[in-house]
């Protein structure tokens, strides 16, 4: 079935089984590395992407539900040459060990920061409830998200998503 997907501001036509989880379409059909396969069960957050401003677990989300939605992956936050504030903050704080969980953490944080530019430590922890990290990078992840909020404030970046309301 042909499905039209809006990912990181670009429209893509893909021809896939409509039951295919969004994760496989992002990784294989669109060749985006950011979202990771961690469990395929909605338990770990490695596959998190943002859909219409909300953090969504792409491993348990059928692609057929994604028509007309605005999907953002970690690739949509900036590039290696021009990292966005979240990416810059994670680099600055060296907030990764293996890094496998990190894009999922960043996308959960992205959804949070769009709604709440200055979240408290508790709010960040609550938002990351489903995101697991096995390397124990948690302290740095928290620091990087706080720092990203600051960077966004400094830049006066209009990060608030209208749809997120």
């Amino acid at each position: 079935m042909a499905i039209s997907l809006n990912v990181n501001g670009e429209t893509h036509e893909v021809d896939v089984d409509p039951a295919t989880p969004l994760l496989y379409v992002l990784r294989n059909d669109l060749q985006l590395n950011g979202a990771k396969f961690g469990c395929g069960l909605g338990q770990c957050g490695a596959c998190t992407v943002v859909v219409d401003g909300e953090a969504v677990l792409s491993c348990v989300t059928p692609v057929s539900l994604m028509e007309g939605r605005e999907i953002t992956t970690v690739e949509g936050l900036g590039t290696i040459e021009e990292p966005g504030p979240l990416q810059a903050a994670f680099i600055e704080q060296q907030a990764a060990q293996c890094g496998y969980c990190i894009p999922g953490m960043m996308m959960t944080a992205h959804a949070l920061l769009r709604k709440n530019a200055q979240p408290s430590d508790q709010e960040i922890r609550d938002a990351l409830m489903t995101n697991l990290c096995r390397c124990g990078t948690h302290m740095r992840i928290l620091a990087a998200i706080r720092r990203a909020g600051e960077l966004m404030q400094q830049a006066g970046a209009p990060q608030t998503d209208r749809r997120a309301g």
Partner: peptide, 18 residues
């Protein structure tokens, strides 16, 4: 700074999975 982190936070191909 770790040389591998920028690719890992921007969606670069970083793992055998990629």
């Amino acid at each position: 700074p770790r040389v591998d982190i920028p690719a890992k936070v921007t969606g670069g191909a970083a793992y055998v999975q990629d």
